[in-house]
Design a protein around this nucleic acid. Sequence first.
RNA 1: GUGGUCAUAGCUCAAUAGGUAGAGCACCAGGUUGUGAUCCUGGCGGUUGGGGGUUCAAGUCCCCUUGGCCACCCCA
Length: 421
Amino acid sequence: MRAVPAFQTSPGMRDILPPESARWRRLNAVFASVAASAGYGQLITPLLEDLGVFARLGEGGEGVSKEMYQFADKGGRDVALRPEVTASVCRAFAEHRPTTPWKVWYTGPNFRYEKPQRGRFRQFDQVGVEVLGVDDAQLDVEVIALADEFFRALGLQRIRLIVNSLGEPDDRARYVNALRDHFESSSAGLSTTSRETLQRNPLRVLDSKRAEDEAAIAAAPQIGEFHSPAAAEHFEAVQGGLRALEIDFEVEPKLVRGLDYYRRTIFEFQSDALDSAQNALGGGGRYDGLVEALGGPPTPGVGFALGLDRTLIACDEEGVFSSESERPDAFVVDVTGGLHATVITGELRAAGLVADRGFDNRSMKAQMKLANRSAAPSAVIVGEDEVAAGTVIVKPMDGGEQITIRRDELVAHLRARPTTT
RNA sequence: GUGGUCAUAGCUCAAUAGGUAGAGCACCAGGUUGUGAUCCUGGCGGUUGGGGGUUCAAGUCCCCUUGGCCACCCCA
């Protein structure tokens, strides 16, 4: 026991210990189930990619690319730990050319070199789906509905869906110009921070929460005014689909997602249970030009990614999807040295039961404490008398009467007992 | 990257106006010799995140450093 550990996790990285890790596994299982129910297959991509795969995530080399873990490997290749998965999915599509529609889901860690705080880590896990090769607005609806269903499956109630459309690439370009003109006009008094943001990306000025920017943002032109007929129709169809599924949503013209590849539909899921600045659980949208930018054929794409950390924090706040220890079906207490426990746990495990046991030939009292702590419904007790008689004692840990049974009846006996709570 | 704030046993915290650290929980062991969760008793456990300074004396004051948290930035 040292006061000072020799090592600790690097900033923004952390260990996830049991039972919390089991909760992560269950969360992934829920997501996998939701995605599979809609015909999505899992895609596993490398955590490490050529730097160029992620080069288009930010305009002018700003944004995500500035936060990337990038380095030259021993072969001199410029590589990076993935800051997100969408670009990798598009790279995989361009590389393997699967038939469309290509519907995939994924889970795993991503890396961004940011200042850590609650709900924001340098290594953070996301789950998500992406679909390539379909232009239909009803696919946007399906994708959004999957995220909505996922949150529902976890038991989350206080989720808010916000949608917007950035229009076609030309619409977006014209809107950006109009925004720049608006904010640069002398009548709009912006904060100095927002003026800097304006130089990099006028869209992001809309994200400002600073009071002094409020008036200028309120007076800014709205993206809707710049939608081409096709973009407006697409956005209308998305909203119609959401209404048909009775999924609540708000249209937020000021919603702009951080990544620059988005076109047309974008959306974000926020939790009202999180009042911090990190209340966005995830989001996504269309990125119709991304595959082409990565060397593939022109291919429409849409998808989303959800942050596991923030989703779990939201679950904590709402008191749902709680962390539970996994409990064995039986805990074997052996006071004859431990060999019988080895044999009995082996038999139980082979029979498909979850069995744990005490070690170090500890006292019966100590082993019973372990049995109690394991939350197993039954303790199986073996002493010299039982060994001599070819029996074991099965003791219900809820206070019921213990009974002595023959060794060869143990599996059947334990199976007959309900093992839940 | 900027600013603020915090850091005491495994966990949650306490320690009067600077005088060489305590509690609860947890863990371990006993409570007439084969049985847990309750109760009683006892025990283990901290050079007070790390380093330096002021002082007769620092957990308590000052500086540096590491890390958490909050806000900004950005975003999941």
